[in-house]
């Protein structure tokens, strides 16, 4: 039952915050916390660019999730924490903006384009999958991470090593009814072995009690479930779809996009990218990802 709490909270919160609009009240300043590189000093940018404007203003407004464990989760101190937040701090530091000058605004999935278009935030780092439809309204820098559909199994399970091994193991797999992952997994298993619930927390309960052998959805959601399982579950780590996460910025700001991409590459080179992962999602998934190659800016 303990597990059902933890997971249910995540699942219900995700189901609940259907949409939101960001605003000043929602933001909170982040005090300096470990991990983020110190802000660059005496940096200067070409006049008129977004970087110059932000540097002069000494303030960065970031849209992120407040309810995504390990990526952007608002804590009791009122500040969000996670991998997305660390990425925002890395970019802020390169802009010469210290971590405590970054303000965070909640940006649930439904309103991410909206907050960028309306200029309520300077950028959105919020488990934000790059796709063509979204590019019609905004531009993406990055990607900074490749998420994808994965499998979650019991800690001591060695038979399930990836989607291809499911059939041989005759494993029952759990997902949420009507979701994209639940459709995708049908390529790998008999429909009879697919168990569908209305929330992922119930899948986690079923996995714990052995009614199913695996749970499938995006690895980011699964990481949150693993995090709250107190060591009972693990990720298989064989992603079989690709969801590149980008940083949303106003449409057509090529210079800002290129600046962010350079920053990400420098962060990968000097180890701060890896440190950002280690301090957040790395607690559950120690294997740090490597920075994916950047898309062209447009």
């Amino acid at each position: 039952m303990r597990l059902s709490h933890l997971t249910k909270v995540a699942a219900v919160a995700a189901a609940l915050v259907l949409t939101a609009t960001a605003c000043g009240n929602q933001s909170s300043s982040l005090g300096s916390t470990g991990g983020a590189p110190p802000a660059a000093e005496n940096v200067s940018f070409e006049a008129g660019t977004t970087m110059d404007k932000l540097n002069k203003a000494q303030a960065l407004r970031v849209g992120t999730k407040f309810d995504q464990p390990l990526f952007g989760l608002k804590g009791l101190d009122g500040n969000p924490a996670g991998f997305d937040v660390e990425i925002a701090k890395i970019i802020g530091a390169k802009l010469g903006i210290p971590a405590d000058k970054i303000t965070y605004t909640e940006a649930p999935s439904a309103v991410r384009e909206e907050v960028i278009e309306q200029g309520r935030v300077d950028m959105v780092v919020a488990t934000y999958t790059i796709n063509a439809k979204r590019k019609e309204r905004i531009s993406f820098a990055g990607p900074y991470y490749i998420a994808g559909q994965d499998l979650m199994v019991a800690k001591d399970d060695t038979t399930i090593t990836g989607p291809e091994s499911l059939r041989a193991a005759n494993a029952k797999v759990c997902s949420v009814a009507g979701s994209t992952p639940s459709e995708k997994i049908k390529e790998y298993i008999d429909p009879a072995n697919l168990v569908l619930f209305d929330v992922y927390s119930k899948c986690a309960d079923a996995l714990r009690t052995g009614q199913v052998q695996a749970v499938t959805t995006d690895n980011v959601i699964l990481l949150g479930l693993v995090d709250s399982s107190q060591g009972a579950f693990k990720l298989v780590g064989q992603q079989f779809t690709q969801e590149p996460y980008g940083i949303g910025i106003p449409k057509g700001d090529v210079k800002f996009c290129e600046f962010i991409n350079t920053t990400l590459q420098e962060a990968a080179a000097d180890g701060s990218y890896e440190a950002a992962w280690k301090n957040t999602a790395g607690k559950v998934s120690p294997q740090a990802p490597s920075l994916p190659p950047a898309d062209a800016c447009s």
Binding site: V12, A15, L16, L18, A177, G178, D198, V199
Partner: peptide, 8 residues
């Protein structure tokens, strides 16, 4: 409100 609460 029940719908907003997550009943599909």
């Amino acid at each position: 409100i029940v719908g907003a609460f997550g009943v599909g």
